[in-house]
């Protein structure tokens, strides 16, 4: 019985991985699961969980600009998101006690711009915009996979180099400033890197679900890990398992990949919370 199940599983995997698009999807997942939980943890600790949502909506405006101007949507998105990330940092300091205002302002602006541009440019780009809205990890191109790996390596290197300053920055910005850290510069750079990572993740995850992939693995890991490094490792592991399971699940259940991935992450989150609650009671 057990051997039969294993054999069935092996056949299933070889069947899935025989497809080129599935191999690319899995590679994309490996890259995303490296950088998403790291950035997600910092976003949560900086109380900027919604920033990924904002930047993903803003990136839609970037996609719209790209389609309108006939240039690569990847580059136009990166450009627009970078500007937005800097503006976001400025708004964050203006509305220090109401940080969510800046998120709301930029989110609406991004959506509004993209809708106006798309309405002016006729129906030509609507199919493509829809792809960015919902994402499709199985239609991801080789170039996009390479781009995801490049940003994964950049985020990983920056994290290894700057984990100590980031620790203080996310703990308390005033303490970081007195400790001699360039707080403003670090915040802007963090926003820009996060923005670019989000812009590159969108073709795979879709603007609507990108924040799930950024925030959920990290929030699960934060419940399990005792310190910064363990949270990062657990986050990467959970991100990878959740996303691979989501892709395989979507293949068999014929459901959208990003939605399936989200449901799996939410299930893990509920499970971990439940076990945590039971653990406390026992």
């Amino acid at each position: 019985m057990f051997m039969k199940m294993i054999r069935k599983g092996i056949i299933m995997f070889t069947e899935i991985f025989a497809y080129d698009f599935m191999q690319r999807a899995i590679l994309a997942v490996v890259a995303i699961s490296i950088f998403a939980p790291i950035l997600g943890m910092f976003l949560i600790l900086r109380r900027q969980s919604l920033m990924s949502d904002t930047l993903s909506h803003v990136s839609l405006a970037g996609v719209a600009f790209g389609i309108m101007l006939g240039v690569s949507t990847t580059w136009s998105t990166i450009a627009v998101v970078t500007v937005a990330a800097v503006v976001l940092e400025y708004l964050r300091t203006v509305y220090k006690h109401y940080m969510e205002i800046s998120t709301a302002i930029l989110m609406s602006l991004g959506l509004a711009i993209s809708l106006i541009i798309m309405s002016k440019s006729g129906n030509a780009g609507s199919v493509s915009l829809e792809q960015y809205l919902f994402g499709s990890i199985i239609t991801i191109s080789q170039e996009q996979v390479i781009a995801l790996f490049v940003i994964a390596v950049i985020v990983l290197l920056l994290t290894i180099l700057f984990i100590r300053p980031m620790y203080i920055l996310t703990f308390d910005e005033d303490t970081a400033l007195v400790d001699g850290l360039p707080v403003r510069l670090m915040s802007i750079l963090f926003n820009v890197v996060t923005g670019i990572a989000i812009a590159l993740t969108i073709p795979a995850a879709g603007a609507l679900l990108v924040s799930t992939i950024m925030v959920l693995p990290a929030s699960i890991a934060m419940r399990l890990g005792k310190n910064f490094k363990s949270v990062i490792f657990i986050g990467i592991l959970i991100g990878f398992i959740g996303m691979v399971a989501g892709i395989i699940g979507s293949y068999y259940w014929e459901t959208p990949a990003s939605a399936t991935i989200t449901m799996i992450f939410i299930s893990i989150f509920l499970l971990v919370s439940l076990v945590g609650m039971l653990g406390k009671k026992l």
Binding site: L45, Y167, I168, T170, F171, K226, N227, S230, V231
Partner: peptide, 20 residues
């Protein structure tokens, strides 16, 4: 009154005082 979910042990936190 910092964030209760901040993932750090007491030792790691005190150690961060040496970083500057």
């Amino acid at each position: 009154s910092f964030n209760a979910g901040f993932p750090s042990t007491v030792y790691e936190f005190v150690k961060s005082g040496r970083y500057p």
